[in-house]
C-alpha cells in the first residue's frame, strides 16, 4: 500500500459551544483522490481549514508525510509542497495571470526555471490568450482555472481544494475535472465539494461528514446508494 501522506488523529475544533469538527480520524494515501461531502454545516470546511493551517484545531493532531503540522501557519504547510485552494477565490487581482502563476512557481524554483514553469502551466491550462490580462478583469470560471494553475505551478505532492467547481458552468466543470485527474498522477488530492455531478465525474472515494464527524467513507456510488447518507442530505433524522 502506498505511503500515508495526510493523517489526522482525533481532530476536534470547537467554536465556543459549537463542535464544528468532532474527533475526526482521517487517512489519505499517496496518489489517492478523495472528496469530502456533507450538508451545510457538516464541518467540511472547518476540517479543511484545520489541515491547511488557516485554523488551529482545539485538540488532535495533523500529520503530513511524517511531519506533525498541527498549529503550523499556512505558509509553512504550503512550503512542504502542499497546494491549497480556498473556498473564496484568493488571487492577486491587480496582477496579470502570468505574474500570479510565476509567483507560485518562484517559491520552489530559481528565477529562470520559474518563468519556464509558468509558461508551461499557462499552456497546459489553456490560459495563453489571457496570460497578460489582469486577474480582476477575468470571468469567474477563468479565475478558478488560474487559481488551479497557481496550485499546479508549485508541483505539489498533496493538493487541497475547497469547492473548486462552485459557481462554474458545465463546460468549465468538465475542464476542471480534467485538470484534477491530471493532478492525481503526481499528487494526492482532497476536494471539498457539494456538486455531486462533479464528484461522480471524477469518480472517487468519498468521505461523508455529518455534524462535524465522519459518517462513512466509501466509493461514491455506494455512498450515494446508502440510505443513511440520503437521509442526512434530505435533512431527516438518521
Amino acid at each position: 500500500m502506498a505511503e500515508i501522506v495526510l493523517e489526522t488523529a482525533g481532530l476536534t475544533m470547537r467554536f465556543g459551544g459549537v463542535v464544528a469538527s468532532d474527533n475526526v480520524d482521517f487517512k489519505l494515501r499517496a496518489g489517492e483522490l478523495r472528496c469530502l461531502i456533507g450538508p451545510n454545516g457538516a464541518g467540511k470546511s472547518t476540517f479543511f481549514k484545520c489541515i491547511t493551517g488557516l485554523l488551529t484545531p482545539t485538540s488532535g493532531q495533523v500529520f503530513m508525510r511524517g511531519h506533525e503540522t498541527t498549529g503550523w501557519s499556512p505558509h509553512q504547510v504550503a512550503a512542504l509542497g502542499v497546494g491549497i485552494k480556498t473556498q473564496v477565490p484568493n488571487l492577486m487581482d491587480g496582477l496579470d495571470v502570468f505574474e500570479n502563476i510565476w509567483m507560485a512557481a518562484r517559491r520552489f524554483l530559481p528565477m529562470q526555471d520559474a518563468m519556464r514553469k509558468a509558461s508551461e502551466v499557462i499552456e497546459r491550462l489553456a490560459l495563453g490568450p489571457i496570460a497578460r490580462t489582469e486577474l480582476g478583469r477575468l470571468a469567474h470560471g477563468e479565475r478558478q482555472r488560474v487559481e488551479l494553475g497557481l496550485v499546479v505551478a508549485g508541483d505539489p505532492w498533496l493538493v487541497l481544494l475547497d469547492e473548486p467547481a462552485a459557481g462554474m458552468s458545465a463546460d468549465d466543470v468538465e475542464r476542471m475535472s480534467g485538470i484534477i485527474r491530471e493532478m492525481t498522477r503526481t499528487a494526492a488530492v482532497v476536494i471539498v465539494e457539494h456538486d455531486m455531478q462533479f464528484i461522480r465525474s471524477i469518480a472517487s472515494t468519498v468521505t461523508v461528514f455529518h455534524q462535524g464527524a465522519v459518517l462513512m467513507e466509501d466509493h461514491v456510488d455506494r455512498v450515494m446508494a446508502d440510505p443513511t447518507v440520503r437521509n442526512v442530505y434530505l435533512g431527516k433524522k438518521a
Binding site: I84, T86, L91, L95, E99, R107, G154
Partner: peptide, 20 residues
C-alpha cells in the same frame, strides 16, 4: 514582485508558501 503580491492578496501569497 512577491511584495507586490502581498499587497494584492496576503492570504494567497502565504498559501503559496511564502513567509508573509
Amino acid at each position: 514582485r512577491v511584495a507586490v503580491g502581498i499587497r494584492e492578496n496576503e492570504v494567497r501569497v502565504a498559501l503559496m508558501g511564502y513567509d508573509v
